[in-house]
Amino acid sequence: MDDRVLGRTGRDVAVIGLGCWQLGADWGRVDDADAMAVLHAAVDSGVTFLDTADVYGDGRSERLIHRFLAERPGEVMVATKCGRRADPHVPAAFTPENLRAWTDRSRANLGVDRLDLVQLHCPPTPVFSSDEVFDALDDLVTAGNLAAYGVSVETCEEALTAIARPNVASVQIILNAFRRKPLERVLPAAREAGVGIIARVPLASGLLSGKYDEHTTFAADDHRSFNRHGESFDVGETFSGVPYEVGVAAARELAEVAAGLGVTTAALALRWIVDQPGVSVVIPGARNAVQARANAAAADLDPLDTDTLATIEHIYDERIRAHVHHRW
């Protein structure tokens, strides 16, 4: 798998990584054995970047990765996130003391002295303009608690604010064939500044797998059931903010494009992201080892041709743009 430099971390990572939200919670049950199988299958397939957060299963995802690191030390870079533990989730909660406590908890969960990369976990918008917050993160780097820090954002404007900060190493943002807005300003700005782009929700919560239809149901503890209208967190995190029925119809058209190329819809969707200039790593999740291997294999596909790219853009413009482009 091709490697790319992850922004100001200076570290090379394989272009397809693994998002580990599924291994913690909110996607239906994934038992420990399946979670460990996912981690091993991903790394066996060339993945070298794992993305998790302290709130995924209240630390369960981090602790599972700790187990994996003990079995296979030195093979991967691990990024985690902090800030969603704040209750209430307000700018005033992002104090130096809380940032230290949150990152200390992640160090313990992951079993490491120094975190490879810590990302602010979609904090309230004013946090991105807070010198105090970023000074505190600089202090944690100086103290050796973390090697680098970045941000995870909901909106393009938040991303642009973060990119302008001199020590932000990476920006994690939703980017997929149903969320194209970051292509306009965020990716060019990141390339110019040398900031890494981590593309999350690459399959639009599974819509872009091409496996769902109007009759698909999800478990009660799956965010695709309980957060369809933003009841628990930003609705853009669930199906990329696309109304489910709209997304199913658009994904059906994309599946026809994929079939014409002889690939799966998921592989087409992942290859589309890999082809975008400025993307450092894309982080699809997986609930089992088969999915993990299939996701990694998308990196081996040839770059998409101009006709295919134009068709994907047309599907977005005709079916998706009006629902999401103005919102994030």
Rank of each mutant, 00 (worst) to 15 (best):
E97H: 05
E97N: 05
E97C: 02
N98S: 09
N98G: 03
R100Q: 15
W102Q: 14
T103M: 14
D104H: 12
R107Q: 15
R107K: 13
A108W: 04
N109E: 06
N109M: 07
L110S: 01
G111N: 13
R114G: 10
L115R: 06
D116I: 06
L117H: 02
Q119R: 06
L120Y: 01
H121W: 02
C122K: 04
C122P: 00
P123R: 05
P124W: 02
T125Q: 09
P126T: 08
V127G: 08
S129A: 14
D131M: 06
F134P: 00
F134A: 07
D138H: 10
G144C: 11
G144Q: 12
G144D: 10
L146I: 09
L146N: 15
A147W: 07
V153Y: 14
V153L: 10
E158Q: 15
E158N: 12
E158S: 09
A159T: 08
V168Y: 01
V168H: 01
V171H: 02
V171R: 03
V171M: 05
V171Q: 00
Q172E: 14
L175P: 00
L175N: 02
F178L: 09
R180E: 03
K181S: 12
P182K: 03
L183T: 10
E184P: 02
P188F: 11
A193K: 14
A193C: 13
A193L: 14
G194L: 09
G196K: 01
I197Q: 01
I198Y: 02
A199P: 00
P202E: 03
L203M: 08
L207F: 00
L207P: 01
L207E: 01
K211Y: 11
E214M: 09
E214W: 04
T217N: 08
T217K: 09
F218R: 02
F218Y: 06
A219N: 13
A219P: 15
A219M: 03
D221G: 03
H223C: 02
H223G: 00
S225K: 09
F226N: 01
R228L: 06
R228N: 05
